[in-house]
Simulated assay, not measured.
Amino acid sequence: MSIEFDSTSLAATEEFLNRNYTTMRIGNDTSGPVRSTVVRERLGDVNLDRLDLGFDMSYDAEPLGRICLCEVETGWVEENYHDAGTDYFGSGEIAVLTPPDLPYSGVIHTARYRITMFDPADLTRVAEVEAGIPVELTGHRPVSVAAGRRLAATLAHLRQLVGDYNGQVPPLVAATATQFLAATVLDTFPNTASAELTATDRADAHPAALRRALAYMEGRVHDDIAVGDIAAAAYISVRALQLAFRRHLGTTPMAHLARLRLQGAHEQLTDGKGATVSAIATDWGFGHPGRFAALYRRHYGRSPAATLGDRPDPPDTAG
């Protein structure tokens, strides 16, 4: 369900922000009139917001409790960071707007910008860390220009998904996209997840553990599972799981899960039974038909439409 807000009232804008973000006080740092527009779309538990503020809005807010990514389209944003002072973001820049567990303040300087918010626990689900150890971002700017561009492309892909499904993204597609977002964020910003393999990790990356992991994945291929869930089922650490897959299969757990889902889609396409390519792709967690078709062709050497259309004629039952 989407949310739309359009107002020329500072009080109404503050009430909306309090209701949909967190408790905050805002002010108008200019002498001009207030104009604020907000549109929110949802991808599972991820909020994809576009804000257009026609005035300089100062804010002093309580913690969001969410990872908050900010992409500036026009204007500029001034954010006060507890550990890094004040930073400024202009057109074309992307950053973490605020740590999830700290109050925040700053000024939005007559800007049009996008905010993407998601649960910090999603970072831990996709990271190579032990269960119960939360992953935290340790910097608010991308580690490189290229990393920032990759994140921007990922966010554009998420917005396209919402549009492709008219706002009704199937749960497995939304869950897969959320994991992709979290993994991209970890690749984009400094964080606490990087660590070296231990001797125990190396010893645990044996075939028996791999078999337990594979059995778990094959039994839950339609479920929203992450690397931490697979490691727990195999009774090993996440890093040992990653090593086992690299050592014995030459891949990663999540890449193998995607391959299992692609195989399931292939079997359903081969069987047919009146389904469309788009419906089958969605059923197996592939949200973008074009990307699904390209992946399918790379693995099977033909398009999914060709497989679906190449069904044998029914047997002749005439006596």
Rank of each mutant, 00 (worst) to 15 (best):
Asp271Cys: 11
Thr251Ser: 15
Tyr235Gln: 13
Thr37Ser: 10
Gly290Thr: 07
Ile108Ser: 07
Glu4Phe: 04
Ile133Cys: 10
Asp49Tyr: 15
Ser105His: 09
Val129Phe: 15
Arg291Leu: 07
Ile225Asp: 12
Pro99Gln: 05
Ala209Cys: 05
Ala293Gly: 15
Gly272Ile: 05
Ala244Leu: 04
Leu123Arg: 07
Ala127Glu: 08
Lys273Ala: 13
Gly285Gln: 02
Asn191His: 13
Phe180His: 14
Asn80Arg: 13
Asp271Ser: 14
Leu53Pro: 03
Arg150Ile: 02
Gly285Tyr: 00
Phe180Arg: 11
Thr176Leu: 04
Gly272Val: 06
Arg66Asp: 06
Ser7Tyr: 05
Ile225Phe: 14
Trp76Ala: 10
Asn80Ile: 11
Val221Tyr: 06
Gln268Phe: 00
Ala281Ser: 12
Ala305Trp: 04
Leu262Thr: 02
His256Met: 13
Thr8Pro: 09
Gly285Thr: 01
Val126Glu: 10
Arg125Trp: 07
Leu17Phe: 05
Ala233Asn: 00
Arg297Lys: 01
Met254Thr: 08
Ala127Arg: 03
Asp56Gln: 07
Asp316Ile: 06
Ile3Leu: 08
Ser194Asp: 03
Tyr113Met: 04
Gly32Glu: 11
Leu262Val: 09
Ser194Leu: 14
Arg159Asn: 15
Tyr216Cys: 00
Arg50His: 06
Arg35Trp: 06
Leu123Cys: 05
Gly163Trp: 08
Leu186Ser: 07
Gly75His: 02
Val173Cys: 01
Ala234Phe: 11
Trp76Asn: 13
Glu196Arg: 07
Leu243Tyr: 02
Ser237Leu: 05
Ser58Arg: 09
His140Gly: 05
Glu62Phe: 12
Thr8Gly: 14
Glu128Arg: 10
Thr252Met: 02
Asp229Leu: 04
Val72Trp: 00
Arg25Cys: 06
Ala111Met: 07
Asn166Trp: 13
Val96Ser: 03
Asn18Cys: 10
Met254Cys: 04
Val238His: 06
Thr176Cys: 05
Val39Phe: 01
Ala231Val: 02
Ala205Glu: 01
Val143Phe: 14
Gly163His: 12
Ala240Phe: 08
Phe245Tyr: 02
Asn80Lys: 13
Thr98Ala: 15
Phe5Ala: 02
Gly65Phe: 10
Gly139Gln: 08
Arg35Leu: 07
Leu308Trp: 03
Ala175Ser: 14
Pro171Glu: 01
Glu41Ser: 10
Phe286Ala: 00
Pro289Gln: 14
Thr13Glu: 12
Thr74Ile: 04
Val227Asn: 07
Thr116Phe: 15
Pro171Ser: 03
Glu15Ile: 03
Val129Cys: 05
Gly274Cys: 05
Ala209Val: 00
Ala131Phe: 12
Thr13Ala: 15
Glu128Gln: 13
Val77Lys: 12
Glu62Lys: 12
Thr276His: 10
Leu161Pro: 10
Tyr59Asn: 03
Phe5Gln: 03
Leu17Tyr: 01
Thr276Arg: 11
Glu15Tyr: 09
Ala152Cys: 00
Asp187Met: 13
His299Trp: 06
His140Pro: 02
Val126Phe: 09
Glu130Ser: 13
Tyr165Trp: 03
Ala209Ile: 01
Trp76Met: 11
Leu97Arg: 04
Ala199Trp: 01
Pro314Val: 04
Gly274Phe: 03
Ile280Met: 00
Leu69Pro: 02
